[in-house]
């Protein structure tokens, strides 16, 4: 006891220094916003490291083997869950009309992956070449448009979202005026419809439909409603701000639109 006391007295300055430093750091972390943020950030970064070190010690106490057995069992059980299977049942729906030939068929798919929200959004569907999905086909949701197929593999397909800076969709109004629908990368709720001639009367809340001119989407699918009208000076055109009726970033179910006449129409388009 006396020795401890002597050590304490001999190093009084160190203990004072150490104790006061603790007080200082407590003050810094509690009363300075920048430093407290850095401290919590550092803790979140290295806390994991600290905990994993603790785990190593725990495992060392003969839990390693036990864990391994449980992990394998888990993996086995997980493989048996429905999510682990690639669904091969095909839900295909089509517009049935006796008087006309079938043109569009719809293939039900699910969005299995998507990019984080950014100016160039894409998503992945769980249907691919096996079921006739090819690049250039449109993707629609329960309401509204979702995107256009971009790349395909045998089981999956990647689509560029309509919320992608490169997307151009032919869209028009009920009165047959049409233009190009694109996204400016700013607000996921709005797209802009350009190239509508200035002399066409447009009213707010008019519905914007697909024209079907590009053979990607069928004619007449509602895309959204007009929220703002802006005449572009000097071009003779007006720019319409379109409020989308769906939220393409949150749709889970999607239908791939397969145009049975696409090839034929494309031949026509490319013929000089």
């Amino acid at each position: 006891m006396e020795r401890i006391l002597r050590i304490f007295l001999a190093n009084g300055s160190f203990f004072t220094f150490f104790g006061l430093q603790i007080v200082c750091f407590w003050l810094i972390i509690n009363y300075n916003s920048t430093q407290s943020e850095i401290a919590s950030e550092t803790w979140s970064l290295y806390g994991g490291w600290f905990r994993s070190g603790k785990d190593v010690i725990d495992n060392y106490l003969d839990l390693d083997e036990e864990n391994e057995i449980l992990l394998r069992e888990n993996a086995q059980l997980r493989a048996k869950l429905p999510e682990s299977y690639y669904d091969t049942t095909v839900d295909q729906d089509s517009i049935e009309d006796e008087a006309r030939l079938q043109r569009f068929t719809y293939l039900a798919t699910r969005v299995v992956n998507r990019t984080p929200y950014n100016p160039n959004n894409t998503f992945v569907l769980d249907r691919g070449e096996q079921l006739g999905v090819i690049p250039g086909q449109g993707v629609v949701g329960e309401s509204g448009l979702l995107g256009i197929i971009d790349v395909t593999t045998s089981r999956y397909a990647r689509a560029i979202s309509i919320l992608h800076l490169d997307t151009r969709i032919s869209a028009g109004l009920k009165n047959k005026a049409f233009g190009t629908l694109r996204w400016d990368g700013q607000d996921a709720r709005y797209m802009s419809l350009s190239d509508i001639p200035e002399y066409i009367t447009v009213n707010p809340q008019d519905t914007v439909y697909t024209t079907g001119y590009s053979n990607v989407f069928p004619t007449g699918i509602a895309i959204g409603t007009i929220s703002e009208i802006e005449v572009q000076p000097g071009t003779g055109n007006q720019l319409l701000r379109v409020r989308l009726i769906n939220d393409p970033l949150r749709q889970d179910l999607a239908y791939v639109v397969q145009d049975l006449f696409k090839e034929e129409l494309e031949n026509l388009n490319t013929t000089e």
Partner: peptide, 12 residues
């Protein structure tokens, strides 16, 4: 609060 105190204590 605390920053200078910490540095000053260490200097002391």
């Amino acid at each position: 609060l605390g920053l200078h105190a910490s540095a000053a204590t260490a200097t002391g």
